[in-house]
Write a protein that binds this DNA or RNA. Sequence first.
DNA 1: CAGTGGTCTAGACCACTGA
DNA 2: CAGTGGTCTAGACCACTGA
Lengths: 237, 237
Amino acid sequence: MSEMSIHDRIRTDLETQILSGGLKPGDRIPFEMELMKQYGCARMTVNKALAPLVAAGLIYRRKRVGSFVAHPRTHSMVLEVPDLPIEVVGRGQTYRYELLTRDVRKAVRSNEDERGLAGTGRIMALTGVHYADDKPLAFEERLISLAAVPDIEKADFSTEPPGSWLLHHVPWTMAENRIGAIGANDQIAEVLKLPAGWPCLTIERRTWRGDDGITLVRQQFVAGEYGLIARFGHTAT
Amino acid sequence: MSEMSIHDRIRTDLETQILSGGLKPGDRIPFEMELMKQYGCARMTVNKALAPLVAAGLIYRRKRVGSFVAHPRTHSMVLEVPDLPIEVVGRGQTYRYELLTRDVRKAVRSNEDERGLAGTGRIMALTGVHYADDKPLAFEERLISLAAVPDIEKADFSTEPPGSWLLHHVPWTMAENRIGAIGANDQIAEVLKLPAGWPCLTIERRTWRGDDGITLVRQQFVAGEYGLIARFGHTAT
DNA sequence: CAGTGGTCTAGACCACTGA
DNA sequence: CAGTGGTCTAGACCACTGA
């Protein structure tokens, strides 16, 4: 407790009050001058405490008016989309990736996915299967922009899956995941050793660096074998 | 550009370099003293620029050593778990909730879900269906702790679904979502007007206020009719 | 106009830790 | 020991905006 810095104490005190409901959405929080007096500190210290609360969307501030608890709009959770090998090994299973197809070619103009990724530049197209304890866990198809990631041509995906390679080598600035469910089609059912139509959790992820698309990946996880967990969080306006 | 504050310029300059790959994971970023000279500002201003980069996990700092670009570890995304009526109406569809069953009783000690929620106190158990444009969208079963939410007994769920009621009336401090896929069983398939075994996206959400469980809800969304979207984010070490 | 938050300065002392 | 980051102070000027 006493090891906490003053700005940490101010911040956590306010967080606690907001999350416990003691301070409700729309309520005014004390002015900077008042917090200075309460905590016996300088204004910069109060400011340092409030900045992360603004960034987290817990409060909003208006000049001449004051600072207020924000109104929660949605349940906003932090979703960890983990590196699959680490996730699987972390569960005590063995992990293996099997590369099925690998193709380097010019992006097809009429294909929306490919055009959005690399314009009319070159792309690498990969399909593969993730195994946990030698049981099929997920089917993956992936497109990678060679303009954005030229080094990818030298990568060896017989040992390391492309997602891990990218995660470790290529920084990204923006990503979007779409999560849904679908029944496995005949081809995927065969690869995953499932009856056709078997339910799968789908994740479609697009990743950008700046305005440049890096990769587009679609994964189908065998229902029951894998789930995503999202925890905690709060976002408001 | 010139409207940007100094700390915003320092921060975005560094972000740009890191995200463009000009600064790679493990690279040292300039010392605070160097940034002071580069930007002609005080050390506090540099500090204000670096703090959000630390919070975002883009850099890490070690005393006596310096500050470095962090190594990306996992994709950490913000998942919006929206209020369903708002989401549906936002898509231009009509929303309707149909309450199927409502039961108030003592929690069953042998049932792990119920015991975890309310000890041996009383609970409300609800099942219902969410409709979009009068087509079944999701089946929902929900348990609510009456100890945590006594007012819920007076709520009318013929118009408003219980999730919205709770979102608007009960603040929560912690939540956990488990996302997966499953084939609809016979009972749920009938309610959702699907063939048995039809793939569904499942969301299981537990919500707490402090140490008290508020609600546990399991939702099954008809595959193709609904998806979750998670955006952006970054976590590193 | 007056009071708020936004930003910034030019210092200061400290804890930590590699050399 | 020396140099880094962590924190803090006591000011300052400004833009914004409700009264």
